[in-house]
């Protein structure tokens, strides 16, 4: 089809009569960091949930590694190498941190190397190594977010989607998590999609950006080539 790792073509999705994602086109290259920016209710989460197979599209296609994954359920899409880190650091609350991470390697292709990957995740998040046996439900918001990221990493994905990881966290924690994401991108060459509301941060960390408004992508381009004023205007739709 094309060499982009992930390609979204003319995707439509919604809830009942409400159209949340309206004819979206998007391409993510290998090793690239893409920022998906937009205000609340712009359709960012619905778009990514549709890509990851949690939500059924009404029209359009999603291609991953050149393969049509539109009709696949979430668990099959993870097996292909596309992982989503859901909003709010959702974890398996009653399971230990270690079991949470091991669940990430449930995918058959990841099971063989689970031990090594687990070591790498602990190396990336040394905090988690200290609390392997604690139930994830007892952790702080930032720690849960790390567990969620670690769990996604355990599947050794080629592309990761982070859904508003900074939501409700302290600035220092956010900075830390963003540094880890940059490291993941560098070391594993993982493509990354960041859903963000913080325009400045998103612009700083990403290679390319897309701004979503009312279900449509209204502006996209190279993050380094756009001035923040234009970005802000597109963000608010003025």
């Amino acid at each position: 089809m094309s060499d982009a790792l992930l390609r979204v073509e003319n995707l439509h999705a919604g809830y009942g009569d409400f159209v949340a994602v309206d004819a979206v086109n998007l391409a993510v290259e290998k090793g690239e960091i893409v920022a998906l920016i937009g205000i609340n209710g712009a359709g960012k989460t619905t778009l990514m949930h549709t890509v990851a197979g949690l939500h059924k599209p009404t029209a359009g296609n999603v291609f991953f590694k050149g393969e049509d994954i539109t009709a696949l359920p979430a668990d099959k899409i993870v097996q292909k190498g596309l992982s989503l880190v859901p909003q709010g650091g959702r974890c398996f609350q009653r399971m230990s941190v270690q079991d949470n991470l091991l669940m990430g390697s449930y995918v058959r292709s990841a099971r063989k190397n689970a031990k090594q990957t687990l070591e790498r995740v602990y190396e990336l998040f040394p905090d988690l190594a200290q609390m392997k046996q604690r139930p994830a439900g007892n952790l702080s918001g930032g720690q849960r977010q790390m567990v969620a990221i670690g769990r996604a990493l355990m599947a050794a994905p080629a592309c990761m989607i982070f859904d508003e990881i900074s939501l409700g966290l302290a600035p220092a924690v956010i900075n830390d998590i963003y540094r880890k994401i940059a490291r993941i991108n560098e070391e594993e060459h993982t493509s990354i999609i960041l859903i963000e509301q913080d325009i400045r941060r998103a612009q700083k960390v990403s290679d390319t950006f897309c701004i979503m408004l009312k279900g449509k992508i209204v502006l996209s381009g190279k993050s380094s080539e756009i001035d923040s004023e234009t970005l802000k205007k597109a963000y608010f739709g003025i």
């Binding site: 668990d75 398996f92 609350q93 949470n100 449930y106």
Partner: peptide
Amino acid sequence: TYTGKAIRATADDADVAALSGVNI
């Protein structure tokens, strides 16, 4: 076992389990 863990994970949060590759 992996299957047992997947069962507990699904009981906790079926959506996240699906995102980890579990066929619910």
